[in-house]
Write a protein that binds this DNA or RNA. Structure first.
Lengths: 195, 195
DNA sequence: GTCTATACCGCGATAGAC
DNA sequence: GTCTATCGCGGTATAGAC
């Protein structure tokens, strides 16, 4: 196409989304104003409305993109017929994927209640989809006698909560490398399901 | 004392705090207005300022009271010299205490970033104090050879995250009684620390 | 495509009547 | 102790110039 490259139109949209994500993660959706986002990008507040119909869409779109990326990336993993290998794969994938996107993850968990109507329903469904994939692994392992689980549903919640908790304290360049963190959590997850 | 009972002054204060807690938990501190709180109580917005100097104090006070209650209730538990018994005690205490106060717990975890200056520092210190008590138990058990832990600090984070996760799904009158939930989580916690 | 200007609203907080 | 009225500010979103 003969479209001009580096036109500011092609660059301002992504910059707005990036600034919004950073600010929403830091201060919370409700506490961030359109004026703040505009200032961060270096445009006037009115100019934002060339790129988003409103503030709510800014939130919904970033949450949707994040969840779609999560589901797609997880689906792209190689098949693991062995439940133990599948659980290890899930554990390492979850930690690695989430640690690389701390702002988006934080927003996805904290700002659900600020989604209006249909928006909430759609994101919630994607989250349940993801959790169901872990539950399938646990169910398979339980059926095969590889795991010893008092309750599949609660084990799913427990493992997800444990893994997602990594994001509350992990910072790059800290005491432990990410792959060491993966190792340690995998050890605890494996034990917790009785494998 | 000859003070009149049921004067509205003795009743309005607590009602304001209760309404604020309910609304903050449901919609988030930043999204709730003083007018909404007043409407919930059935007074005008201006009347709130007889009971709180400002909106921020409303948030800080409820978080402080919650954390103080948590620390005091935990300190009141009987001593457990045996690390395994101590970990079971902590597990059951945490689940039971938190499930009975879901609004306060939700606020304590979600609204930390809306505390200004000193307020943040003080609440954060109380939270670290509570987590240190779990870490002590794990440390003792590790030293005694009762637990097998790859990393004490991460195990603390993992157990806290797992247990606090109960609040995201547990509802009274659901499929499982609270003491059954305690049993199931205790089973997973015990296994995860290698006991 | 971005600006300035602005409409319109609701915010936290205060003052003074009752 | 609660009301009404109001201040000053900043919110989202839009209109029209450039």
């Amino acid at each position: 196409m003969a479209r001009k490259k580096n036109s500011s139109a092609e660059v301002t949209g992504p910059r707005i989304r990036a600034a919004a994500q950073r600010l929403f993660a830091r201060h919370g959706y409700a506490a961030v104003s359109m004026r703040q986002i505009a200032a961060e990008v270096g445009v006037q507040a009115g100019a934002l409305y060339m790129y988003t119909p409103d503030k709510q869409s800014l939130l919904y779109d970033m949450m949707h993109d994040h969840m779609a990326d999560l589901l797609q990336s997880h689906a792209a993993l190689p098949d693991c017929p062995d439940p133990l290998a599948a659980l290890e794969q899930f554990t390492r994938f979850h930690i690695r994927f989430h640690s690389a996107r701390s702002d988006a993850v934080f927003i996805a968990y904290m700002e659900l209640r600020n989604l209006e109507g249909e928006n909430f329903t759609r994101i919630e469904a994607m989250r349940r989809n993801y959790e169901a994939r872990l539950q399938d692994v646990l169910q398979r392992g339980h059926g095969a006698g590889v795991f010893r689980l008092p309750d599949i549903k609660l084990a799913t919640y427990a493992v997800i909560a444990m893994l997602t908790g990594v994001n509350t304290w992990y910072r790059e360049g800290g005491r432990l490398s990410l792959s060491r963190v993966e190792d340690i959590y995998w050890d605890m997850v494996r034990k917790s399901v009785g494998a």
